[in-house]
């Protein structure tokens, strides 16, 4: 069944297949390297940290 294919078809489809694989792998790497969005604002976490547990260990100002 492959005898009917010309040399041109074989080469063209091989190169296109290799490029498709390479594109797919690169797209996967891009997805991995994308920085994860920060779940919460840092200021909010700092403000809501359990400072009341520190009352006799360390003195922390009440305000920001």
């Amino acid at each position: 069944m492959f005898e009917a294919m010309g040399l041109e078809t074989v080469i063209v489809s091989t190169i296109i297949g290799a490029c498709a694989l390479s594109f797919g792998a690169s797209a996967y790497l891009f997805m991995r390297a994308r920085p994860a969005p920060e779940a919460k604002d840092l200021d909010k976490i700092v403000k809501n940290a359990p400072y009341h547990r520190l009352h006799n260990v360390l003195k922390v100002e009440a305000g920001s």
Binding site: L42, I45, V46, K47, A49, P50, Y51, R53, L54, V57, L58, V60, E61, G63, S64
Partner: peptide, 10 residues
């Protein structure tokens, strides 16, 4: 002050 370092200790 309230800052990330003290939040970590807390």
């Amino acid at each position: 002050k309230r800052r990330p370092a003290t939040a970590l200790v807390a």
